[in-house]
Design a protein around this nucleic acid. Structure first.
Lengths: 107, 107
DNA sequence: TTCATTTATTCGGAAAAGCGAATATATGAA
DNA sequence: TTCATATATTCGCTTTTCCGAATAAATGAA
């Protein structure tokens, strides 16, 4: 397959979005937006077992959201594309506005 | 709770993103961007059982992504916020670019 | 009330995704 | 080669999510 068909792109699209549906993975993406970070550093920052972080990173890597670079035994991850944060920020803004609208209705 | 805390907003954020991780739900959102649509019409358009569409719509409604309006026995759904499509389109563009980068590497 | 239509919910089961602990692998230093 | 460190993967297991079919609920017309 040279270019994925629309149907298939839709599947990939959902697959990528699904990767964003876990709080720890969102935290990882925001942390990597600050700066490229090693696996252990992420595990400490997020107070999460290393195996869990590593699995989440594998998911994010498979979905083209992050890139890995090895230096010796260390592996540093970075965002594959800063626009991912734009996506997340916009989604968060939309959510925030929706919540505000709801609370206005309640008052 | 008047204003959700950051921690809680993060959970909601992931919760909303998770709703985007199913192909049929993406199709629903894009269809609703074209125009507000009734449940049965969506079911026919997407060749999906009505119960399935209705469940997906309930998920999207709970996550503030769509709004429902009842007229008699019919219920018409619409996007809660057009920026949701901006989010999806930007994510799709990022994905497309990532795929292109990968195929360049392979060639 | 009864009936037809539309939508929502429940049911039962299958598939997917998550987790921490433990183990395996990879790399470089000694 | 042996050891230490960093990361990846596997192992059981639990929880969540999804599905189609069937049923229930809501609405309006007759």
């Amino acid at each position: 397959m040279a270019q994925p068909q629309i149907e298939e792109l839709n599947l990939l699209h959902a697959h990528v979005c699904q990767a964003l549906g876990v709080p720890t993975r969102l935290q990882i993406l925001y942390a990597l937006h600050d700066q490229p970070t090693r696996v252990n550093a992420l595990a400490e920052m997020l107070k999460t077992p290393q195996s869990s972080i590593s699995r989440h990173l594998a998911v994010l890597r498979q979905r083209s959201l992050v890139l890995a670079e090895r230096n010796g035994t260390e592996v540093t991850y970075r965002l594959a594309d800063d626009r991912i944060i734009e996506v997340l920020d916009l989604m968060r803004l939309v959510l925030r506005d929706a919540l505000e609208r709801q609370s206005n209705i309640l008052n």
